[in-house]
Design a protein around this nucleic acid. Structure first.
Lengths: 336, 336
DNA sequence: CTGTTAGCGCTTTCAA
DNA sequence: TTGAAAGCGCTAACAG
């Protein structure tokens, strides 16, 4: 393992000073002549600049910290894709830390990233606590949250309340009055509260006699599946699930009981996962452009680093995709 | 934005030299007395050691580069989970670079990671080319491949040929003779060649009159779905898919045509994705423990960094999960 | 346009 | 045990 070649070696080979080499590397002024010599020396040796030295000197790492709750999720994957694309365009690189759904680890990760000298941190938080605010307010680098929102911090997220409302309006228009909302715990404010209440608010508005029952689950297929019995007790005409994955779990349950979707019960989800398009029946859903959220978030942190204000305009498109899992309820003649 | 506090500040505050602070930080000898003073100074200031300076000096980054083809895939996610866990245990951290299914970017990423001073690189390659060998052989740090194998390099992967064989034996035992293997391009040696030929070899062994037709697709649901017509022309009793996702695509196709699975056609996949357990019918599959592969790979790169040999023992468990998508063919009495 | 110089914050001899 | 000193590889004034 030969010693790494440094800028000084190149300087010596090219017969110039190391500042000239540095200038060459960083687009400073340099004569054609010397540039050529330097170039050749670099090519011959395969020189590569030492990032640590450079960063130590410049106090800029070109690194953006990214804190995510988990990595084995397609939505997180798409989000990271978006971030990655935007960061790459701007010669930044992401440094991803996984919190394993543990809020303490999430906090640790933020600190750790800061310590590593990243230029900014993107936090895809499960739930923003007081500690989050404490920690991030002390940092000397910008941070931006996503997935959840809170006062006094920067965040970029889709409008869960609005998504809920769109779905609510849809089910109202379809004539459903007896609905189960299969959602998640309120610890998750975005999905657990906003999405749910958007839905409920829209359903109930000017819609006498309508009822929305809440059943709690988590993000897994299995948990949703296991809630089937409980849901059926409400004799709903529709089950609206907080995510498409939850919907897939309940679809399995209904299949097993030989309950026809959408003929006997309508179901729908949120997210617009690809898998929901090939399930049988295909799931009606509200599609979120996670990749776009990633792009906007990355742009946001970049703006913050440059001292710019964050754009207020957080509109991430919300698209209702009507597929096969919802049927209109035909009024059976004035009963109820 | 106040100046960051450095080791020198701590030294001054504690009335010691910065070498002593450094020793304190790195478990060197230090008197109880001074240790206490240093500790208090650190706590008061919230001092954090500058990683870049440390790395510049020690020539060790504590960073492992990870190159993956894409991030929005659950299998990749699980793999990263495994890596992450093992790395964390050993106080290393992953630096993930995404190749976006582009082999040139994959190569770039390897170089870029090296340049950034990582201590080793894990490469989840799509296809190992000559260039891969050239580049990695020139590096001064260890590399380990996964997902694909090749001579003269370190790799850890599951045994695709064996997985194929297990599935082949299974279908043979179930009496299927007219099978379509819905697989992918041979560019991907692991899935495109090994997995497929393991299957075909096992089916054909001592099994006169059996036929396996190959139909090519890619890893998406849609592409598989679109191959439905072509597959049906072969009038198979079984469709074996190279991955569970492919299987989900074909399942959708069969549902639409009202072809009953497994009564009219049996299907199966590879991977053991959770979604395959809640689809209808649930998919019979061979489960791969991607997380374990991640753990083993991470352990491997760590071993390599310490100069240890890589263990030969690459046995990743392969488990056939029988669910609902395969039916036994009852011999109709000596025909064929 | 170019070279000299200082120094980023840390670790690590070496000598005390 | 401890401190002084050197230096990791690079950039950025500054003077020329």
């Amino acid at each position: 393992m030969e010693r790494k070649v440094t800028i000084q070696d190149i300087a010596t080979m090219a017969g110039v000073s190391k500042s000239s080499v540095s200038r060459y590397l960083n687009n400073g002024y340099i004569s054609e002549d010397k540039a050529k010599k330097i170039k050749s020396a670099i090519e011959r040796t395969g020189f590569e600049t030492n990032f640590f030295a450079k960063r130590l000197k410049t106090k800029k790492s070109g690194l953006i910290g990214i804190v995510i709750p988990r990595i084995d999720s397609v939505t997180v994957g798409k989000f990271l894709n978006g971030i990655n694309r935007k960061l790459r365009e701007n010669d930044y690189q992401g440094m991803i830390l996984i919190s394993e759904l543990d809020i303490e680890k999430e906090l640790d990760n933020i600190n750790s990233l800061n310590q590593q000298g990243v230029d900014g941190i993107i936090i895809n938080s499960m739930s923003i606590t007081k500690k989050h605010l404490e920690i991030t307010s002390k940092l000397n680098i910008p941070t931006i949250f996503t997935g959840q929102k809170s006062e006094f911090i920067n965040y970029i997220k889709l409008d869960d309340y609005k998504a809920g409302r769109i779905m609510g309006e849809y089910f109202k228009a379809k004539g459903h009055k007896e609905i189960v909302f299969l959602g998640i715990n309120e610890f998750d404010k975005a999905v657990g509260i906003e999405r749910k209440s958007g839905f409920i608010d829209a359903v109930k508005e000017n819609n006498p006699g309508s009822r929305v029952q809440f059943v709690e689950t988590d993000f897994t297929f299995t948990s949703a599946y296991l809630k089937g019995d409980e849901i059926l007790k409400y004799k709903p005409t529709a089950i609206v699930c907080a995510t498409d994955n939850i919907c897939l779990g309940i679809l399995r349950y209904l299949h097993e009981r030989n309950i026809k979707v959408p003929d006997e019960i309508s179901v729908a989800g949120f997210g617009g996962y690809e898998i929901g398009g090939v399930s049988y029946p295909a799931i009606t859903t509200i599609a979120f452009d996670y990749e776009l959220i990633g792009i906007k978030t990355a742009q946001g942190i970049l703006d913050l680093i440059e001292g710019k204000e964050l754009e207020e305009n957080n509109d991430i498109a919300l698209e209702l995709i009507e597929r096969e899992s919802v049927k209109e309820i035909v009024d059976k003649g004035g009963i109820g």
